[in-house]
Design a protein around this nucleic acid. Structure first.
Length: 353
DNA sequence: TAGCCGTGGAT
DNA sequence: TATCCAAGGCT
């Protein structure tokens, strides 16, 4: 790869970073564990969203050991609202492996750290460069956007194989003396200056070394093709309570969407549905509805990354059954507040107050 | 490989 | 309102 501004790009980026970098909680520590936690939380998640979660999480789990053996329900509750809940499970599994296999020392080399659950090529490079000052690439969306412009790389960043090109570019450019500052500089530049739309090129510390700025096509890069199809699913939700005012809740399976999170029972409405959803509810959950208190408690859509739930919620009074299915139980409101629930269920919970 | 896996903010 | 997307990883 030919690029005549390598030294100038590197030097100006690191100088800019040291002057303009944001004051973030995970930049006030050199603890590899805490930096690891921040990197996992930051996956596909905005800085402003992460900050309060990060602070709360590390107050609860200040050490590897404190997280390694925490109850999963408590862990998920700490993660509630952050999304991508498998990150929490994988982080705990990885932390547990570090405690048991690496004597509670986060590995300082790519080979070992990459084997940890939830640690991919980006997170490995981020922890190694920031916490251990290793000259390792950490290619995320910011880095691909910045370097696609600076180096005029027109490969489709939606394709997984394209990441290798940017890893090679970082390997060429990275400051061997200050790799952590270099990598974070690329990310801050991408977040603050070299933004997806309307990049602030006039404020950019490396615009003189940016080919896209010279060509005037920075706003055309990066090239990204993939688009997502969003499937819609309709549900009737049954918010059922017994004579003691306790609500019927169900724990989701331990794999897939919202794994191990709690929800009000939901019946999918499809073209193949034969029974009325209320009959299906009573059959599946082995309960009897005494009363339809409100068949239009709340109607709303909840959009996930790849699908949409269209929810119609019914408030029903039900007769307590003698043998509920496994993972289904009545809970008081106080107990419900201790259970990890996804945002659409929190929306429903809100209207009950 | 491409689809799965959350959420809330920006445009 | 619709679309895109933000410090990705797993299968």
């Amino acid at each position: 790869m030919e690029y005549q501004y390598k030294e100038l790009f590197r030097q100006n980026l690191v100088e800019w970073f040291n002057k303009e970098k944001r004051d973030l909680p995970w930049r006030r520590t050199s603890d590899p564990y805490k930096i690891w936690v921040s990197e996992v939380m930051l996956q596909q998640t905005r800085v402003d969203t992460v900050i309060p979660y990060y602070n709360r999480f590390l107050k609860k789990y200040p050490t590897l050991q404190s997280l390694a053996y925490a109850p999963q329900e408590e862990l998920l509750k700490m993660w509630e609202g952050l999304g991508y809940y498998s990150r929490a499970r994988n982080l705990q599994a990885g932390v547990k492996e570090v405690v048991e296999k690496y004597d509670a020392k986060v590995p300082d080399n790519r080979h070992d750290i990459s084997k940890l659950k939830g640690v991919g090529p980006y997170t490995a490079g981020a922890v190694l460069s920031i916490a251990y000052n290793k000259a390792e690439h950490a290619v995320d969306g910011n880095v691909m956007r910045v370097l696609s412009r600076a180096l005029h790389i027109k490969e489709d960043i939606a394709l997984p194989k394209t990441r290798k090109i940017f890893e090679q570019a970082v390997d060429m450019l990275i400051d061997p003396q200050r790799p952590g500052d270099f990598n974070q500089g690329l990310m801050d530049l991408g977040a603050m200056i070299c933004t997806p739309t309307s990049p602030k090129c006039l404020l950019c510390p490396v615009r003189d070394y940016c080919i896209a700025f010279q060509e005037g096509d920075a706003d055309q890069l990066p090239i990204k093709t993939k688009k997502i199809k969003n499937k819609k699913i309709k549900y009737d939700v049954y918010v059922g309570y017994d004579e003691n005012g306790r609500y019927l809740l169900e724990k989701r399976p331990d794999e897939g969407l919202l794994a191990n999170m709690w929800q009000f029972p939901m019946i999918e409405i499809s073209k193949e549905s034969v029974l009325k959803s209320s009959d299906e509810f009573q059959l599946n959950y082995n309960v009897d509805i005494m009363d339809f208190v409100n068949d239009n408690l709340l109607t709303f859509k909840h959009v996930f990354s790849h699908l949409t739930w269209e929810m119609n919620c019914n408030l029903v009074k039900i007769v307590k059954a003698t043998d509920l299915p496994e993972n289904v139980c009545f809970y008081s409101k106080e107990q419900i507040n201790q259970l990890p629930m996804p945002v659409p269920m929190l929306k429903i919970l809100n209207v009950l107050n």
